[in-house]
Amino acid sequence: MNTVMRTGARHWMGAALALAALVIAFAPAPSLAAQPIHRHFRIEASSFEYTPPNITVNPGDTVTLELASTDYVHGLYIDGYDLNITAEPGDTQQLTLVADKPGTFRFRCSVACGPMHPFMIGKLNVGANWLLWRAVGLAGVAAAAGLWIVRR
């Protein structure tokens, strides 16, 4: 009797964890709509960093990035948006995008500029990083699930 009750409780716990994971993973993100505006950023590229390294905009904003290279030829490729510009030393180049994909995206140098070139990375934050928050929630469920899947 006790074993049957314990097995039943385990099944309920498993179902609850699965449901929690599904809700965290797929529930629609709250919309924190702000009036879209046009933002302009000047990004200085030097070996092997961008200044500023983090750019934050709201979803829907029109964003102009002005890339200025201070030493060698550098590029700026934005993951997820698949956009790319390059700038010669002393030169500036611009690209404009509509930030219609929310999330956090890496931008990285697209021109071999020196030894640490593959690691020259910055971040474009479009609204809240819901993927990270969902991941934190899933990690909580995962820690509990690890306890649950082990039979006594």
């Binding site: 993951d79 995206f105 890496r106 991941a135 899933l138 990690a139 995962a142 820690a143 899947i149 082990v150």
Partner: peptide
């Protein structure tokens, strides 16, 4: 040079890391 799968890699990383945590948690308990 073309980065591949940049749209899905972050989600894949979440799956991998969360899976690792389930595994680590179960192993710690055992």
């Amino acid at each position: 040079w073309t980065p591949y799968f940049t749209q899905i890699i972050p989600a894949l990383q979440v799956v991998v890391l969360v899976g690792g945590l389930v595994w680590a948690s179960a192993t710690a308990r055992q």
